[in-house]
């Protein structure tokens, strides 16, 4: 039963991360003591999903939401594209700007995660990020907290988010 549940969870995870592209024709059973008998088949993940998995998913979660400490992407991140500073912000947050991947890969994974987790919130005239845009934007070093506060205020003033709570971060008390 546990194996079945694990297999189900894995299959679900695999189908989630490969959403948006047709699964590859041939999956193969994973040769592993836990999966051999379950017959679990995995389709290869698309490259952008892999980039998300290896660079973002550990903290932001495979469904775009995770621990309270970490900003939720699902149903939220798209709002940022509605004003120019917000669009810049998504490239200039330190873990994107300072990421070891190429400009093209960063553009690809940003476009992928916006479309996958927050398509409904995107700006009506959203244009995908390009590598050259990312290359230019990621040179800047921003004050993340001040920047984010300014953007949320601007979005609220422009009527682009329902309320100030939409993009609020929880107040974390650690100890």
């Amino acid at each position: 039963m546990r194996q079945f549940a694990a297999a189900l969870a894995l299959a679900l995870a695999a189908s989630i991360v490969s959403a948006g592209s047709p699964p590859a024709a041939s999956g193969s059973n994973v040769p592993d003591i836990e999966t051999r008998r379950s017959g679990l088949q995995l389709a290869p993940m698309p490259r952008t999903a892999q980039l998300y998995a290896t660079n973002c998913q550990g903290c932001h979660g495979e469904f775009g939401s995770s621990a309270a400490e970490i900003p939720t992407l699902a149903g939220r991140v798209g709002y940022f594209t509605r004003i120019p500073e917000g669009r810049r912000y998504l490239v200039q947050v330190p873990n994107v700007a300072l990421n070891a991947n190429s400009d093209a890969d960063i553009a690809a994974v940003l476009n992928w995660l916006l479309a996958t987790y927050s398509r409904a919130q995107l700006a009506a005239d959203f244009q995908p990020y390009t590598a050259s845009e990312v290359a230019e934007l990621r040179q800047a070093r921003i004050d993340v907290v001040a920047s984010r506060r300014r953007i949320v205020d601007a979005l609220l003033a422009a009527g682009q988010i329902p309320s100030a709570d939409t993009l609020a971060l929880p107040h974390i008390v650690l100890y």
Binding site: A14, S18, L42, P44, P46, Q50, C59, E62
Partner: peptide, 21 residues
């Protein structure tokens, strides 16, 4: 243990996420 109910570490697990291309 970020985000867990406790920051006290017990052990490490290794879950399968997916098949790389």
């Amino acid at each position: 243990c970020f985000g867990a109910s406790s920051m006290v570490y017990h052990c490490s697990s290794a879950g399968l996420v997916g098949l790389a291309e």
